[in-house]
């Protein structure tokens, strides 16, 4: 799998992607190509559709009634909105971390083991390994290894979010989607998550929605700027922040509005 990824230029591509909530046209003609093992940030003012867009990549919008999608999202050149595609299979390969930490009301161990378990892994030894590896990868292992059977609700907000990241790692995805993962966290916890993102891109492709431009500048390789459902500009992060082509982008990143 990894070899294949290296050969491919883009791991996720969208083509003329449109999305409606009822009559509200939330995403308009988005075309976007994302490279593997890079961090791509989606930025833009509130309500610009960046969270909606990221939820398209693992078909999380299927959960919302009255949501309509037109256009294509290619994952390894396969349209995930194609007729024979099972959203469940897609989500096993494309993990997601949500805005607010949402651990299940179960123990720390069970939270991580949940994903492997639903995929049929019940071998205790295998699970133990996966739990440990995921927690290590999420830089949480040292903090929780003594109390794996405690409720996940007893963790702090930042720990809960790293637990959620670990949870998504446990299913060994290729891509991790992060929907404003730090918006509910304090600066120290945020710094830890940002460091973690830097580590994660060695093995995974990360797509992150963020409200915070400095964060996008710090963590991402590529940045896409969205405004009112449209993709305004997409390119290398350094370029977007230092020398944007579009006036709208420049206005936003220089803080003139947003």
């Amino acid at each position: 799998m990894k070899n294949k990824m290296v050969k491919e230029e883009y791991i996720v591509k969208t083509k003329d992607l449109n999305l409606w909530y009822g009559t509200n046209h939330a995403i308009i003609d988005v075309n976007l190509n994302m490279k593997p093992n890079k961090v791509t940030a989606l930025i833009g003012p509130s309500g610009c559709g960046k969270s909606t867009l990221i939820r398209c990549f693992n078909r999380m919008n299927d959960v919302i009634p009255e949501c309509n999608v037109k256009g294509q999202v290619y994952y390894h050149d396969k349209d995930i909105y194609g007729p024979s595609v099972d959203a469940v299979e897609i989500r096993k390969k494309i993990g997601m971390v949500f805005q607010k930490p949402n651990p299940f009301p179960k123990s720390i161990y069970e939270n991580i083991a949940y994903g492997p378990r639903v995929q049929g892994i019940n071998n205790k030894k295998k699970l133990d390994e996966l739990v440990e590896k995921s927690l290590r990868d999420a830089a949480l292992w040292d903090e929780v290894k003594e109390r794996l059977s405690d409720s996940a609700m007893s963790l702090s907000g930042g720990q809960q979010q790293r637990l959620c990241i670990a949870r998504s790692l446990a299913i060994q995805p290729e891509i991790i989607l992060m929907d404003e993962p730090c918006s509910a966290l304090d600066p120290i916890a945020t710094a830890k998550i940002e460091d973690l993102i830097g580590e994660l891109k060695k093995d995974y492709t990360v797509i992150i929605v963020t409200h915070n431009m400095q964060q996008a500048a710090r963590v991402s390789d590529y940045t896409a700027y969205m405004y009112l459902g449209k993709m305004i500009e997409f390119g290398k992060t350094t370029k977007i922040f230092e020398n944007p082509k579009e006036e709208l982008t420049e206005n936003y990143i220089t803080g003139r509005f947003g």
Partner: peptide, 8 residues
């Protein structure tokens, strides 16, 4: 969503 996002 947390559960669905993990391929359950």
């Amino acid at each position: 969503e947390g559960s669905l996002a993990m391929g359950a």
